[in-house]
Design a protein around this nucleic acid. Structure first.
Lengths: 153, 153
DNA sequence: GTCGGTAATGTTATAATGTTACATTATACA
DNA sequence: TGTATAATGTAACATTATAACATTACCGAC
C-alpha cells in the first residue's frame, strides 16, 4: 500500500478509536501501521521483530495485547489457518472478513461476498447455532501466481 | 458415538484404505479411532497422551504423522481455529467440511451446505483464485448450550 | 494539583503447538 | 533372500501463545 493510502487508513483508525472512547496508544498504532503497510500478513513474532526498531525490549505479551485490542476494534483480522494477521482496509463497520490466501506468493485478498455471508448465516440458523465469529479462509493460488507459473486451471 | 457406529466408521476407513492401496497401520488406526470415538475435537497433544495407553513412548512426530496421513485420506479434519482434529463421519468422497464449533461445550457439528460450497467457489473464481483448501469454521454457541443457559437469541 | 482507581505496559517464565533431522525397523515385491 | 520404499523411533528444537505479577500512565473527582 502506498504511503498516502496507509496514512488515510491510519487516520480513519484514529477517528474510530476517538469516537469509541478507546485509546490507540503508540504501541497499538505501531503494530497497526506495520500490518497496514505490509503487503503480506505478518505473524506475531514478525511484528515483534519489527517492534524492536521502535520499542526498547518488546516481549510477546506486548504484541499479543496490541493484536487483541486491534482485533476487538475491527482494525485487523487474524488468519487462523496461517497464524498471521492482516490490516483491515475498511474497518468502518464491524465485519468478519473472508480471505483468499495464496500459498505461493503469500499475499491475501480480503473479500466480502454477501452470498457467502448469507449462506453461512443460513447454515448456522438451520442448526440453531449462534455464530460469534465466522472463519472463512480459502487457501490456494492467486490469479497472478497461476499465470506467472503457467499453472493450467 | 456409540460403539457400533464407531465400528462401522472404522470398517469403512479400512475398506477405503484397502481400495486406495494405502496402509492403515496400527498407529494410524488408533489415532483415527480415538478421534472417531471422541465427542469433542482433540488436539495433537491430547492424542499423544491417549497414545501412551497403547504405544510405549510416543513422541510428537508419531501423532503428527498419523494426523497427516488421515487428513490426506480424508478420514479426519483439522479445525484451524482451535488447533484440534475431528474424525470425519462420511469420508467416502473427499470433501472440505464446514464446521460449527461451540465455544461453550466444545462440541463440533460438521455440515456440508451446497450454498456455502457454491458461494465460496464463486467468490474464488471471481478473483481468478484457485482454491486448494477452503477453511470454514463458525465459532459460536450451539443450540443445546443456548437453551440450557437461557441465552436469548 | 493530588488522590485514587482503572487501563496499559513491563518482565519473566512457561505452556501449547508443530517441525527437522537422522537412525532404525517393517513391508512389499522382484 | 535381497533390495527399495514406507513407516516408525528418537532427540532436539522452532514457533505460537499465555500466565502471573510488578510497574507505569492516564483520567476524573475532589
Amino acid at each position: 500500500m502506498n504511503p498516502s493510502a496507509i496514512e488515510r487508513v491510519m487516520q480513519r483508525a484514529e477517528a474510530l478509536c476517538r469516537e469509541r472512547g478507546v485509546r490507540l496508544t503508540q504501541q497499538r498504532r505501531t503494530v497497526l501501521q506495520l500490518l497496514i503497510a505490509s503487503e503480506k500478513p505478518m505473524s506475531a513474532y514478525d511484528l515483534l521483530d519489527r517492534l524492536r526498531e521502535s520499542v526498547k525490549n518488546p516481549a510477546p505479551p506486548t504484541v499479543y495485547r496490541a493484536l487483541d485490542f486491534l482485533m476487538q476494534q475491527g482494525l485487523i483480522h487474524k488468519l487462523e489457518s496461517i497464524h498471521a494477521y492482516v490490516g483491515c482496509t475498511h474497518p468502518d463497520h464491524p465485519h468478519a472478513g473472508q480471505f483468499l490466501i495464496c500459498a505461493d506468493c503469500g499475499e491475501v485478498e480480503e473479500v466480502q461476498d454477501p452470498r457467502i455471508t448469507e449462506s453461512l448465516q443460513a447454515a448456522g440458523q438451520a442448526q440453531g447455532f449462534r455464530t460469534h465469529r465466522p472463519v472463512v479462509e480459502l487457501l490456494g493460488v492467486c490469479a497472478h501466481c497461476r499465470h506467472t507459473k503457467s499453472e493450467t486451471d
